[in-house]
Design a protein around this nucleic acid. Structure first.
Lengths: 216, 216
DNA sequence: CTATTTACGAAACTCATAGTATCGTAACTT
DNA sequence: AAGTTACGATACTATGAGTTTCGTAAATAG
């Protein structure tokens, strides 16, 4: 989408302007939310002309999406394999929850979700950048747990993912209670109890790791 | 907020106009979403002047909130007591999920959630009308189950509520999968497994009702 | 019946902002 | 040096939320 052919003819795109625009956008987004972010303010703060922004991003929403994605692109945990599903899920969800509560990201995410309801191009990008990767990581962790025999082979994976992420988004968006570490681990524990084999083997709770649980 | 003193002096408020405004608003909301709903169109379709709308509602968002609430105010199940937590929760969640999938309510709810992030007056109203009542009903069902001994007395109720509603909102808003009846009952079953006593008594799955489970 | 009060529909208005168009200039390739 | 593309600045268009004005309608008070 922002690709350029190798052999370019005229003046090359200014990388400095590009980064300034992304940084200014994230800044204003965090200060005022998406609706409160005006393109004139972004252009002014980035020290560029509005036309320069619109040459590379079709809409304010597309710019905002890429800006937030860019600002989050630092330090992605990437597939922690702790040996237990509990550890893997905590490793995925805890850092995410921690970042979410450092700044008012909730209203930006809410605005993205709202935009995605009406703008299918935006929806595609939003899912590709913010939703699918996280689900894939959790799906992989669940897959490893199934291979280890830690959970039944027939586990409903899609349901499990929704049970994990649903409550997190719920609190992020409805703000009826904090996204605390405790909340995250409570969700993980609850989901593990829900999908664990019916007749729990000997292993019943150690609150630490549990290795190898055989399902009948 | 729309209250009037008993002894009124001038021309009384037109109930006909009020209902026409609410109906037109819901109609346009469903057709175009909140962002696509213009006050001129609502006024035109309701056959009223814009000033009449703004005399009774402070903003478009406040009007939209009341309009959707009003359109949903018909047929509220109200505290089903089926005798089992599973039955009670299904009775609460299934009709809601069914209504949500009959029309594009998701984008309206998304817009409400987004507005609530920035407008605290709106947030208060949104919670009072759309969030709190449903949570209260589910909380009551969980309370009855605890009294019956169906679930442990120490159950984390807030967590349980988020485990129930979170996944539903998640699919409503992210639209990665349908809000099917099956999904709803799967959530309920999973949550019941999660909060059921550790050492499951004899009762292990009947997919029907299960009455009275004694916790050690 | 008349005066007073409040609501009404219509229409013109203000103001903010997303997105476009124009312009003169800068930075690159051939 | 010529051609091409990007740049910042600025003026512009279009849309829509919310306000104001106006003449009129529906009620109450005396």
């Amino acid at each position: 989408m922002t690709e350029r052919s190798v052999a370019q003819r005229g003046r090359p795109r200014s990388e400095k302007a590009r980064l300034a625009i992304l940084a200014a956008t994230t800044e204003v987004l965090l200060e005022r939310g998406l609706a409160g972010t005006s393109m004139d303010v972004v252009a002014g703060r980035a020290g560029v002309g509005k036309a320069t922004i619109y040459r590379w991003w079709p809409t304010k929403e597309a710019l905002a999406l890429e800006a937030l994605y860019h600002s989050w692109a630092v330090a992605v945990p990437d597939e922690p394999d702790t040996g237990s599903l509990r550890g893997d899920l905590a490793a995925l969800l805890l850092p995410w929850a921690r970042r979410l509560r450092t700044q008012p990201y909730g209203r930006i995410v809410a605005a993205f979700i709202t935009e995605a309801q009406t703008n299918s191009e935006f929806e595609k990008e939003y899912h590709a950048r913010f939703v699918r990767p996280r689900r894939e990581q959790a799906r992989a962790a669940i897959g490893r747990a199934a291979v280890r025999g830690e959970i039944p082979a027939g586990t409903n994976v899609e349901l499990t993912l929704d049970l994990l992420y649903g409550p997190l988004y719920h609190r992020l968006l409805h703000r009826h209670a904090p996204l605390s570490d405790r909340f995250v681990t409570d969700i993980v524990d609850a989901v593990l109890r829900a999908i664990r084999p019916e007749r729990p083997a000997v292993m019943v709770r150690a609150r630490g790791d549990h290795n190898r649980v055989r399902t009948p």
